[in-house]
Amino acid sequence: MTKPIALKPLHALLLDGQGGARDMDAAEINAWRPDQGLAWLHLDYTEPEQSEWLRNQSGLSELVCEALLTENTRPRATLTGDGLLIALRGVNLNPGADPEDMVSVRLYVTPDRIISTRKRRLLSVTSLAEDCRKGEGPANVADFLVQLSGNLVERMGEVVEEIEEELSSLELQLLDEGHSAAIRQALSNLRRQTITLRRYFGPQRDAFSQLQNDRASWLSNDHRLELREISDRLLRHIEDLDMIRERAAMAQDELVSQQSDQLNQRMYLLSLIAAVFLPLGFLTGLLGINVGGIPGSDNPYAFGVFMLILTLLVALQVWYFRRQRWF
């Protein structure tokens, strides 16, 4: 007989059905029975001990184990018997991380047991575990799904709001300061971030739709309505991301327009200067050739007269340019 593994999961909670829960030790985990209440085990699948327990002592099928241990996953919800195999993603709010670097959580949910796995810490799961310990958690497995989904979408909304505020700040800087390399780089990063989030939010909504449609016996109509509301909130976040992306594109277009206007103004100024000095250069070059017969070569007042002629010529050009409204 295989010796039971002294499992040390990230969270091992026995829910009391009233919103509270208590932590279970390794012996209680291995001795747990469905009649004791709803058990929630949250594992780090990169830990060899925890993955071994999942494969050999959890009692789950090989297919479910592989789904809980897979490295790459896409948001989904699949009904297997009376259990649900679910993969969801949450924004990465860990210190020093990029929010668009989404964190995956995999769950296998039955009426009497929840097993979830992750690689990186997900604040939505951590806060749910703390709510359970404080007596403010879910009463049953359906409540658990609704509360976890709500936590994930709520934090997604917070990230979307932060991105929108950042974009508004960049738009004000663009109006006040005009074109700058820093604003251009910030807009590019913001567009990349929204594109990445939009890419992940869409499949997440599809997973919530699957949850609503799957006919799990323990998922009531009220819970389906709550999941639909969560899905609608996620849809609004997706629409906000689309709007942010379009606003960022318009801001980038404005940057390009400002840069083009600045370049055109400078080229226009240089063209005016060249137009003023072109006849002056022609006259000075013509009188500067080293051949006989140059007018005024023997006259001591010739240089002053020539400078006066050049000054009058410049004044005539400026008058003409202003009359034509070239500047």
Rank of each mutant, 00 (worst) to 15 (best):
I5E: 01
A6F: 07
H11Q: 11
L14M: 10
L15F: 14
R22H: 10
M24H: 09
M24W: 09
D25Y: 00
D25C: 10
A26E: 13
E28Q: 15
N30Q: 11
N30A: 09
W32P: 01
W32N: 00
R33I: 09
L38T: 07
T46S: 11
W53D: 01
L60Y: 07
E62T: 10
E62P: 03
L63F: 06
V64Y: 08
C65T: 13
T70N: 10
E71H: 12
T73V: 13
T78S: 14
A87S: 13
G90Q: 06
G90I: 04
L93S: 08
P99Q: 00
D101T: 11
M102C: 05
M102T: 12
S104P: 01
L107Q: 06
Y108V: 03
D112F: 04
I115H: 06
T117D: 08
R118H: 05
R118M: 06
R120G: 12
R121W: 07
R121H: 11
L123H: 08
L123N: 04
T126Y: 00
S127T: 10
E130R: 07
D131K: 14
K134E: 07
K134W: 05
G135S: 06
E136M: 10
G150Y: 11
N151W: 07
E154D: 15
E154Y: 10
M156I: 14
E158K: 14
V159L: 06
V159M: 10
E162M: 12
I163K: 03
I163V: 13
E165W: 11
S168D: 12
L170I: 08
L170N: 02
L174I: 03
G178W: 07
S180E: 09
S180Y: 06
A181E: 15
A181M: 09
A182L: 13
R184Q: 12
L187V: 08
L190S: 03
R191P: 02
R191M: 10
T194S: 12
Y200R: 05
Q204N: 03
D206Q: 14
A207P: 00
F208V: 06
Q210G: 02
N213V: 15
R215N: 13
D222H: 12
L225I: 13
L225N: 14
L227R: 03
R228L: 15
I230N: 01
D232A: 15
L235D: 14
L235F: 12
R236K: 15
I238S: 12
E239V: 12
L241W: 00
M243W: 01
M243H: 09
I244A: 03
E246Y: 00
E246A: 13
E246V: 02
R247L: 06
M250W: 04
A251Q: 05
E254G: 02
E254S: 13
L255Q: 13
D261F: 14
D261Q: 15
M267D: 12
Y268S: 06
S271R: 03
A275M: 08
F277D: 11
L286G: 05
N290A: 08
G292C: 04
G292M: 03
G296D: 01
D298G: 08
N299C: 04
F303R: 08
F306G: 09
F306L: 10
F306R: 04
L310H: 04
T311R: 02
L313A: 03
A315P: 01
F321L: 14
F327Q: 10
